[in-house]
Structures are given as structure tokens and as C-alpha cells.
Amino acid sequence: MMTATPAASLKGRRRDGPTRPRRGGVRRRRSAGPLFVAPFMALFLLLFLAPLGYAAYLSLFQERLVGGTAFVGLDNYVRALEDPQLIHGVGRVALFFVIQVPVMLLLALAFALALDSGLLRLSRVIRLGIFVPYAVPSVVAALMWGYLYGPDFGPFAQLSRELGLPAPDFLSDGWMIGSLANIVTWEFVGYNMIILYAALRTVPTELYEAAAMDGAGAWRIARSIKLPALRPALLLTLLFSVIGSFQLFNEPNLLMKVAPDVISSSYTANLYAYTLAFTGQQVNYAATVSFLLGLVIVIVSYAVLLTANRRRTS
């Protein structure tokens, strides 16, 4: 982006420039640095790297109900790469990602632009209304939608019966991904909208004024100023969505109660890892599956970043 260069150099100058030098300031700053970082590093090591390392360690063993624990090297990984349940689970969340994320982000973008345009009445109420579902715990949301989707006593089914139409079977095999996507979209549109809206609020108003002076209309401003300004925020929401989609768990886990014949224990990769660990007592294999899933997420996230960056430079 063109504006990136001056902004960066401005920041750089500010950092390096002479800012009222104080005696001993440099030394104090040097010793203070690690101290400030220490709390984060301690937690990062303890809660992030240590469990990760332990999971990696676990994934190299196999513990059996009969016969105890044995080192098996990469056997678990070989098994996982050929495991149809894992492959289907990853494939399903990938499909979910492709279907759900564009819809959610486009909606979030549309809402953010509409709110930022200042043309909406009651914009604060609307903003809050769109955001409220995010405040509803996803467990509650899934239970609520599970009821709404109900084929006998759910309101949609009852309404369509009143109208003499065939009731849509939201919980059937064919509809399930759409039904899940709907729940997740409902939950997270508000969250993504807030991120995009906040990004829009940081655009200096001078830019809008200058554009208006040059005769740009609302659409033109949206396309040429707002959208480019939103690019980092959009990328952020996209990355969050990659991670969220591939780790899909709560919603299918809860809808499993109402549609056990459609949502199996390996419906998503995360659900599969959970089932392996806590139903099948295959902790080591579950660690392997988790690790591979993490790897998939890293690869997809990286691919997203790479495509976005390439588009930016071209």
C-alpha cells in the first residue's frame, strides 16, 4: 500500500530519534526489558510450549489397556495419515470453512460499512443487537438452535406445517453443514463486525474530506478508501476464522445429542481427537491427531497469509 511507507518511516524516526535523553536511561531500559517480558515468557513456556512439547512426546508412544506403554516412534503418525475418520473430519471442516467463512465475513463487512456510513438510524442499538449473539456462550447457542431446528416441535417445522409446506429437516445429513454454518455465523458476525468497524473508525476523517472534495460518492469512498484501510483487519478476521473453523467442536458436539445419527464422534477432526482421548482411552493417538490438526491449521493460515501478501505486492 502506498501509505505504508511514510507511516513506517514516521514510526521509525520516532523510535530512533533523540527523545529527551536521561542519565542511565539506556541501561535501565536494557535491564527492564527482560523483566517486562518475563511474566509473558513464563506463562508462554508453562502453558503453551510445555504442553505442546508434552503432546509431541506423548504422540511417540502407545499405551494399551492390556500390555502397558511402548515407544512406537512415528507409527501413530503413519496410522493417522491413513485414518479415514481423520481425513473425513479434516475434509469436513475444510468444506465448512469454504462455505461459512465468506458468508460470515461478507455479512460482517456489510454491517460494519453500513454502521460506519452514519446513514443508519439507531445505529448503536443495531450494533449491539448484532454483537449480542457473540456474548451468548456457544454452548447455549448450540442448544438453542438445536431446539429451533427440531423437526417436530421446532418453530420452523411448526410454521411450515401451518403453511402446509414440507418441513425442512435442518438436522439431516444434507443440511447439517449448513445448519452448523448458520449457528457459527450467527455467533461470530458481531465479533468480526466489531473488529472491522473499529478499524474503520481509525481512518482519519481528513481522507474522507479530501475524497469528498475530489467529488467521490459514498460507494467510491467505500471502495477506494475504506476497503483498502480494512485490509489488515480483514486478514486478521480471516485468520481467526481459519483457526475457528478447523477447530470446530462445541456446536457439533452439542447437536450430536439431537442428531446422533448424522454427527458421528469423528464429525470434525477436533471432535475425533476428543473422542479418542476420552472415549477410546487412546491418549497417545489423540495427541498425534491433535498435532496433525495443528499442523494443518498452520499450513492453511500460512497459505492465507501468503496469498494475501502476494496480492498486495502485485
Binding site: N270, A287, F291
Partner: peptide, 23 residues
């Protein structure tokens, strides 16, 4: 429901944490 939801809600990394309790 709550426990299942809670335990694996945050996915692979959380699982790793949970597993580390099983040594």
C-alpha cells in the same frame, strides 16, 4: 455437556494441556 464443551472447546492446544495432566 458443559464439561465436554469446556474441555475441548479450544481444540488441539487445550487437548495438549489436558493430556499433560495424564502423566
Amino acid at each position: 455437556l458443559n464439561r465436554r464443551g469446556f474441555l475441548a472447546a479450544t481444540g488441539a492446544l487445550t487437548l495438549a494441556t489436558a493430556l499433560s495432566a495424564c502423566g
